[in-house]
Amino acid sequence: MENDLFQKWQSQLRKGYLELCVLIVLRQKHTTYGFELLRLLNEAGISLNEGTLYPLLNRMHKNGWLDSYWIHPEDSGHPRRFYQLSDTGVEQLPKMLDAFQQNECAVSKLMELI
């Protein structure tokens, strides 16, 4: 029971956090696709699987934070869906970062009080 509640809490906490991480990666990389994005996030130490990332990308695209387009390589490669920050995403990212950092600071201050 406690484990379930913790997982639920963690899931709620991660949702916004993972969206922020995706936006950050796309700001750095400009454009990339799901498989590569997953690799970069995992390498950064973020534990994330396919079943979470792909629906997340779909939702962020629907929210208007991401643009997506398909690239069909002329060689034998297969088509890939690429993502990049939309204008809204570019606008939202600094606000999200500020909010995230403020929360981090608040937690730090609370920890100092204790």
Partner: peptide, 17 residues
């Protein structure tokens, strides 16, 4: 249209693997 794009993307993931 959205559903078909979701399925294509998962198929693309398989190819990337």
């Amino acid at each position: 249209q959205v559903r078909d794009e979701v399925l294509r993307e998962i198929q693309s993931y398989l190819n990337d693997c």
